[in-house]
């Protein structure tokens, strides 16, 4: 029932989205060599695209593995029985909440910081720091304050890279258009979406 309702709302919104938007990008080349096969061929010969797909797979695997094990980690390793008064939240819930809040901070900081210092450079720095913090996570004492502090810091950097990846896929669209004259936004963004699904599976 709930799923059905969400589905119907979704379809309505998709249709509205389609009817309320207008294509403003002009296609440079004519439609003469327009075929999905040719577009795919171009894409598979695009080195930056391969690098970006692999990189975003790694970045998303990072989140998938970390988040999926958290419940077990808290039950078997941390073993803290705590419920927040009033809300009834346990430690795992608080851990996820802290992570989401920090993710948001990272996402919001991304446009300004990456515009100033560059996407590629700040992406690499964010990954390096997140990697170091995660290694640190292994060595910190089994203490909830430590865990939450590290969760907060890690999630800021993990959140920071999410909008960057999207925006880098848009850069690939442009680069591809310059090379081949085809503006393959749909194809390239669905490939990014597919790499997300693959890593969550």
């Amino acid at each position: 029932m709930g799923v059905g309702a969400i589905g119907i709302i979704c379809v309505t919104l998709f249709l509205l989205c389609f009817s309320w938007t207008k294509e403003r990008v002009t296609q440079i080349e004519s439609e003469k060599n327009a075929s999905i096969k040719q577009d795919l061929k171009n894409l598979f010969h695009n080195a930056p695209w391969w690098i970006l797909v692999a990189t975003s797979l790694a970045a998303l695997l990072f989140n998938a593995v970390r988040d999926s094990v958290a419940i077990y980690f808290f039950r078997d390793y941390v073993k803290v029985n705590y419920r927040m008064l009033g809300t009834g939240w346990d430690m795992t819930t608080i851990y996820f909440l802290v992570g989401q809040a920090a993710n948001l901070i990272g996402v919001m900081a991304a446009p300004a910081i990456s515009a100033k210092y560059g996407k590629k450079k700040t992406y690499m720095i964010a990954m390096l720091v997140a990697g170091a913090l995660n290694t640190g996570f292994y060595f910190i004492p089994n203490n909830i304050t430590w865990i939450l502090i590290f969760q907060f810091m890690i999630s800021i950097f993990a959140g920071y890279v999410l909008p960057l990846l999207r925006s880098m896929f848009a850069d690939i669209v442009d680069q591809q258009e310059l090379l081949t004259g085809r503006h393959a936004t749909g194809l390239i963004f669905s490939s990014s979406s597919m790499s997300q699904k693959l890593s969550w599976a």
Partner: peptide, 24 residues
């Protein structure tokens, strides 16, 4: 799984990005 494996993912992403040619 909550610490070293994600760290490995970060290193992979870092190394991959080193070869990414589309600088700003």
């Amino acid at each position: 799984m909550i610490s070293l494996m994600p760290a490995l993912c970060c290193i992979l992403a870092f190394v991959g990005m080193m070869f990414y040619p589309l600088t700003d």
